[in-house]
Amino acid sequence: MAVLLLAEVNNGELAMDATAKAVNAAKALGDVTVLAAGGSAAAAGEAAAKIDGVSKVLVAEDASLGHRLAESTAALIVGLSDSYEHIVAPATTDAKNVMPRVAALLDVMIVSDASGVVDGSTFERPIYAGNAIQTVKSNDAKKVITIRTASFDAAGEGGSAAVETIAVGDNPGLSEWVEDKVAESDRPELTSAGVVVSGGRGVGSEEDFKLIEGLADKLGAAVGASRAAVDSGYAPNDWQVGQTGKVVAPDLYVAVGISGAIQHLAGMKDSKVIVAINKDEEAPIFQVADFGLVADLFQAVPELTEKLG
């Protein structure tokens, strides 16, 4: 039983956290071969070779694979698929773009966002924004799975898998990369941060989101936002935590001015410690919070930022 695992590679660099979490989930399924694909991917491949539980690394470098374009990446994976029973990737936006395409080309149904591995064909996954957990058994010959990284710890480092460079097929030529607009930030990445401070509609404006960012910087935290805050233009979409945004499970999650719609809870309720600050004591966020503070955030957040010093 062999597993092909698509590594998360951003501009030639391995996203270690997401990839190592997926490796940890996939180890139970069989021998893990990691595929590092990209315009440049050799360094990412070398990094992936060190993840515990990886038995082999394949490096595929070609301009057509840069920026993880779905059509070329899916074609590459399908070309390799004969030797593997499981094809796995961390459930990042890149993999969510590529993996359903792979599954359809192989005529199998994808298992998206698996939060648990029961056995080689049975997986748990959240549905209805995490309001239910469904256990599904795949009856397909091959299994194509994306892994909800927030549900698994990262595999350790210390391995030394062999790295092999593989040939890349023809570019299907269906799409081209134009540009990336990536927000530059010194803060930790949202899905792997140990602490996340999120703001909601209650923050009231893009300007006042600085309060959230100030508290986050004090805690060395990533900044998140509810969909309501994103919809209102207070925060960029890549900060969105929830059903249609990112799923996080940090050691500490601070929800500020967030009412706690089920769609938001879906993205953070597995956090170890949850703090909620909201002036509405009826807000549903308090039902999942370990520590709730009913207060005006414009007073409480600056005070908290100061006292955490």
Binding site: V108, M109, V111, T122, P126, I127, G130, N131, A132, I133, Q134, T135, V136, K137, S138, N139, D140, K269, I274, E281, F286, Q287, V288, A289, D290, F291, G292, L293, V294
Partner: peptide
């Protein structure tokens, strides 16, 4: 369906917290 539903469950509830 290619995926057979084995079971569907409520997610584990969080223990009640406190208001400070």
């Amino acid at each position: 369906p290619r995926l057979e539903v084995v079971k569907t469950e409520e997610p584990a509830a969080r223990a009640a917290g406190i208001i400070v």
